[in-house]
């Protein structure tokens, strides 16, 4: 094996493991797209390392998760609405839409695509989209758009929110008069999009607060905010 192919094989292993970032990751992705031999090498490494997956303890998913999956299955083999939506988001990003414009267009598109999912069971959860402007004493830092019938939360930041390796930004929903519930840590970039599990989606009502706190890397160890609140705002009907 010559040096070049040996380097390629190591790159394939690094890619399969998920070690790569930035330029190396981009290079590996391009090779993965363009080079069948590289794809084979990545798959071989996945197979080599796969036995380690047997060491991981099993865990029972919460009841009701299967129903959520079933409701997401497309009736035909065409791309699901979620995927279509994600592609649209991607296009908006490419057009570098302004923050509020992004939030507004998301709300419009989500509203404009009703009735394409199976009927949901009757519930008291509101179905109109809502928006929260998360700010501090100065200006809004983030805009959150909540689309109840998709259980989809999109958060757009007015500027990148840098965070050092020792900390994470954690997003919370706080029902009026209730305790904060974690929505997980936020990615480092300017946009995030998440599907909110049913156990939490009921808390997205008018008057509920969305907040971002600074936490140790990986999120609050206690399940409640431990660090300073960086931005907060209330959900309002869009």
């Amino acid at each position: 094996m010559n040096t070049n192919s040996s380097e390629r094989d190591v790159l394939a292993a690094e890619y399969a493991l998920g070690l790569l970032t930035d330029d190396d990751l981009r290079q590996a992705r391009e090779l993965f797209e363009s080079d069948p031999e590289f794809r084979s090498a990545v798959a071989r490494w996945s197979g080599r390392l796969a036995p380690m997956l047997d060491e991981i303890d099993e865990a029972a998913p919460p009841p009701g998760l299967w129903q959520r999956i079933e409701s997401r299955l497309p009736a035909s083999r065409s791309p699901s609405n979620v995927i279509v939506l994600q592609r649209r988001v991607s296009r908006w990003r490419a057009a570098s839409a302004a923050m509020t414009a992004l939030a507004a267009s998301l709300a419009l598109i989500l509203v404009a695509r009703p009735g394409q999912r199976p009927l949901q069971p009757p519930s008291t959860v509101p179905t109109a989209p809502m928006v929260a402007m998360l700010g501090d004493s100065g200006a809004a830092k983030l805009v959150a758009t909540w689309t109840p019938d998709k259980s989809m939360l999109v958060v757009a930041a007015s500027a990148a929110m840098p965070v050092d390796g020792a900390h994470s930004h954690e997003l919370w929903v706080i029902p009026e008069g209730g305790k904060p519930r974690s929505l997980g840590t936020m990615p480092a970039g300017r946009h995030m999009m998440m599907h909110v599990p049913r156990t939490l989606s009921g808390m997205f009502r008018k008057g509920a607060t969305l907040a971002v706190s600074l936490e140790p890397a990986g999120g609050s160890p206690t399940g409640l905010p431990t660090g300073p609140v960086l931005a907060a705002g209330q959900l309002e009907t869009a």
């Binding site: 970032t21 990751l25 994600q86 592609r87 990003r93 970039g189 946009h191």
Partner: peptide, 11 residues
């Protein structure tokens, strides 16, 4: 990676 890079687009 999405967490790390803030990539919003799953595709």
């Amino acid at each position: 990676r999405r967490r790390r890079d803030g990539e919003a687009d799953l595709d």
